[in-house]
Design a protein around this nucleic acid. Structure first.
Lengths: 350, 350
DNA sequence: TTGAAAGCGCTAACAC
DNA sequence: GTGTTAGCGCTTTCAA
């Protein structure tokens, strides 16, 4: 194993130039003779030299890292946000450093602490809920902090997201529009999945606004709730609230699980029961019937977050009036209702 | 923004000790007075000191990074592998640096080049297909290289994976067992998705072995093929090979897309048509009917890869006989056939 | 166009 | 238990 790697010093010796000249050979715009550069690059190839960006980064006091903290990587929505975020940041020469909390705030705190030691240029977190210590760490980090996928009451700094409580109301309004009144909610009400809890709160608020009973609440257990839990929750709902005519689910996987349970029991969706999800996952657009859902624009979140970071870090950015005085930036993402087959058409109160 | 951060030097001055003493205060096992340490740590808290691991890593010539290169993060199987891999490596103090190729070998080459400059301790790639230059980079990297999710003819170094061609044969054998003979294959045959192509090759080989016609091949377009493409491919298949009684799909998303298309057309699965997938995605276990599939053990791949890396990097590992001479390690992951409802029961040739 | 000096923040190794 | 020295590989600055 070539644990002993070739350095610029070695190259310099071999090319009989100074280390500085070698350094210049690897930068595009430095003043250096074309022939000298070519000779050095050829030599580098021969000796198997690999540029050490850790050293360069250290010397420049820039890591070009952006830390991104997610509840889980195994979630198509978060994955899409990260995908776009990474791709976009790569255009600015930035690299994403990913961390997963497993939906635990304690783990998030530990991760933030650990991440900050790596001296990222900015840090992106999911949600607006953090432990007090985590908040303190973020506030004192001295780098841009962006909370995403949420619309916190009291943001740490920048925000790119939306209100989960509000978004779910789009679903409720849609169902009420179609004449549904006896509506259940399937979704977690425990653990650290605050987005799920907010969706439940949003459901309750929206039902109250319509003067409807909002007590048909079925938990799906701690996050991440997925298809299986959705099926189990539907069974539970049929047992507890048999008069239900429509269900709002905290996520599309839950909704799809519920749908399969209906199929197994011979319950026709949407004729006997309407089902709505959340997240605009791939499955919502293809299941039979297709699921009515909310598109939270995950790629938009990633894109706007990346652009915000690039702008905040770009020293050449033209500052309009107040130089160095710009306050926190709040970018609201517009979720979109996608009405579809699973909530059918309606003709009267259900 | 506190672009000017507090260093050990500042702490040393404030605590009226040497920088070395400060350094010791942050290491668990160093000889230092308990009171001195406490005083320094308290001071660090007050001054908002954050340990700079980039400097420590640079000094120690260890980054504690492991590069992991994936086709896409938006794939539940790869996500699971990475999840377990990251978690396990974290136990050894390692951090994963993720990169996505978008199923492009050219992009993979660029990524590998870029990653190696960050001086990772090891590099994990997906698949055994690389550009010649990428292979060269990997071979000369001087760190452990692990190819995963594949079983290459000519591995670069270590391997943790399985043969996609062989695995798909498990599905074919199962269908033949159940009496199916007129079997189609839905899956990509273009672009850089070599795992998909290998599955197709495996299908053809298995059919030939059973003396069956293997010419019912329906492409799904370039990777990543997903549910929508699966539905479209099924429609195409019905048109081109209407006598088909069973379809083998290159992935569960394709299979599920095909299933939904059947549901829309009133084709009963498995009575009229059997469908099998690949990957043991969540959807396979819950769709109605549930999908027969192959479980490629993604978390096992992640776990074994992590443990292999930790072992290779651990200098205290007891080397049995040949010190520093151990050859490449090949860990074969045993995929598992999961027979389920979508391939039904059979009574005779179909 | 090229080179010499200095140092980014931390720690191994060795004194005391 | 604490301090001193030296240096990881690179680049900014200034001089030639």
């Amino acid at each position: 194993m070539a644990r002993t790697s070739v350095t610029m010093k070695d190259l310099a010796k071999a090319a009989d130039v100074s280390v500085m000249t070698v350094s210049r050979a690897f930068k595009a715009d430095k003043s250096i003779g074309a022939d000298t550069r070519e000779r050095i690059l050829r030599l580098a190839e021969q000796l198997g030299y690999v540029f050490d960006s850790t050293a360069a980064n250290f010397r420049n006091q820039r890591t070009d890292f952006v830390s991104v903290i997610l509840p889980s990587i195994n979630n198509a929505n978060f994955a899409e946000t990260v995908d776009v975020l990474s791709t976009q940041l790569a255009l600015g020469g930035m690299q994403v450093l990913l961390g997963y909390t497993g939906y635990s705030l304690a783990r998030e705190e530990a991760l933030i602490d650990q991440m900050l030691r790596r001296k990222p240029e900015a840090i992106v977190v999911t949600g607006g809920q953090h432990t007090p210590d985590a908040r303190k760490l973020l506030a004192k980090a001295g780098i841009p902090v962006i909370e995403t996928w949420d619309w916190p009451q009291d943001p740490v700094q920048h925000v790119v997201g939306f209100s989960n409580a509000e978004a779910i109301q789009g679903v409720v309004d849609h169902l009420v529009d179609r004449g549904y009144a006896r509506i259940s909610f399937l979704g977690g009400e425990q653990g650290d999945d605050f987005r799920g809890m907010e969706r439940r709160a949003g459901f309750v608020a929206a039902m109250a606004r319509h003067g409807l009973a909002a007590d048909r609440l079925v938990p799906t257990g701690p996050a991440p709730a997925s298809m299986k839990e959705g099926a189990a929750a539907l069974a539970l709902m049929l047992d507890r609230f048999p008069d239900t005519r429509a269900v709002v689910c905290a996520s599309d996987p839950i909704a799809f699980g519920a749908l399969t349970e209906c199929q197994r029991r011979g319950i026709d969706v949407p004729r006997d029961l309407a089902i709505a999800g959340f997240g605009a996952y791939e499955i919502a657009a293809i299941s039979h019937p297709r699921l009515t859902t909310i598109d939270p624009m995950p790629s938009e979140i990633g894109l706007r977050t990346a652009n915000l970071i690039l702008r905040l870090l770009d020293p050449t950015a033209p500052e309009p009036e107040a130089p160095e005085q710009e306050g926190p930036i709040r970018i609201r993402i517009d979720w979109k209702l996608i009405p579809s087959e699973s909530t059918g058409e309606s003709t009267g109160t259900r």
